[in-house]
Measured scan of single mutants.
Amino acid sequence: STGEEYIAVGDFTAQQVGDLTFKKGEILLVIEKKPDGWWIAKDAKGNEGLVPRTYLEPYS
């Protein structure tokens, strides 16, 4: 699937089932941008889950 690459600007630990845990500096592939501010993203290992958009910045 296609998506946009974003870099994590902080650590995030999953708070509920379906969230994706990530560390600062990780590159995430954003698959869907939901209007509530929680985006669906995939990490380098292929894990998929919800992430808070405030922790992400476009990666170029």
Rank of each mutant, 00 (worst) to 15 (best):
Y55M: 14
F22V: 12
Y6M: 08
Q16R: 14
I27M: 06
Y59N: 06
D11P: 11
E57D: 02
T13Y: 05
G46E: 14
W39P: 01
K45V: 06
S1N: 14
F12G: 04
Q16L: 03
K33R: 09
I7R: 08
D11V: 02
K24C: 06
K24H: 04
W39I: 06
E26I: 02
G10E: 03
G3N: 11
Y55E: 14
E32M: 11
L20S: 01
E32A: 09
S1M: 13
G46R: 08
N47A: 09
E26N: 07
K23V: 08
P52L: 14
D36C: 06
Y59M: 09
T54G: 15
V9F: 02
D11N: 09
V17I: 10
I40T: 11
K23G: 07
T2P: 03
I7M: 14
T21W: 03
G3F: 15
D36R: 11
E57L: 02
G25F: 03
L56A: 02
E57A: 13
V9T: 11
P52I: 06
S60I: 15
K42E: 10
E26P: 00
V9Y: 02
R53M: 05
D11E: 08
L28C: 03
D36A: 02
G25I: 00
E57R: 03
L20R: 01
D43E: 03
D36K: 14
S1F: 12
Q16D: 04
S60R: 05
I31S: 10
E5S: 13
K34C: 05
Y6N: 03
P35K: 13
T54R: 14
P35C: 13
G37R: 12
D11H: 08
G37E: 13
K24M: 05
G10F: 09
G49D: 00
E57Q: 02
G10Q: 15
V17E: 07
V30R: 01
G25N: 08
W38I: 15
E4N: 10
G3M: 15
I31V: 07
T21Q: 09
I40W: 07
G25C: 02
L29F: 07
K33A: 04
T2A: 02
K23T: 12
L56Q: 00
Y55P: 08
R53P: 15
W38H: 15
W38A: 15
L56V: 07
G3I: 14
G37I: 14
G25V: 00
G37D: 14
W39S: 04
T13C: 04
K34P: 09
T54I: 05
G3Y: 10
